[in-house]
């Protein structure tokens, strides 16, 4: 009985709180927005308050921040072993152009 009751209780509580606080869906939008500029204090507080109680949104925020860190590594050519190089034709063309003396 436990998990069913728990789910119903949780939903009931969330429904009640939905009137006063944003849903997970809204929080996911706000978490993203908070990474692109300063949100008003009221918004920031509502994220923090929600995240205090909601482990999914807590994970979501943490993982978006991880995504940001991972993307920084990905963006660095020395760290990202993309297997690709400038075509031979383009290299030759460029070499000729760059060897011309002014």
């Amino acid at each position: 009985m436990g998990s069913n009751l728990k789910t119903r209780l949780r939903r009931g509580m969330m429904r009640l709180m939905g009137r006063v606080m944003p849903s997970c869906k809204e929080i996911s939008e706000l978490v993203s927005a908070s990474m692109d500029g300063n949100l008003p204090m009221r918004r920031r507080l509502s994220i923090r308050f929600h995240i205090l109680m909601c482990s999914f949104c807590r994970r979501y925020e943490k993982q978006l921040l991880l995504l940001r860190i991972g993307t920084k590594h990905y963006a660095e050519p020395d760290e990202n072993p993309v297997e690709a190089s400038l075509s031979a034709a383009a290299s030759e063309r460029l070499k000729r152009a760059l060897e011309r003396k002014p």
Partner: peptide
């Protein structure tokens, strides 16, 4: 050293651009 640019940097630059 413009005449060395292709050998020294073009792969790095190409990957920098391709990633983006």
């Amino acid at each position: 050293n413009p005449s060395e640019w292709v050998d020294a940097h073009s792969n790095y630059l190409f990957r920098y651009a391709l990633i983006r």
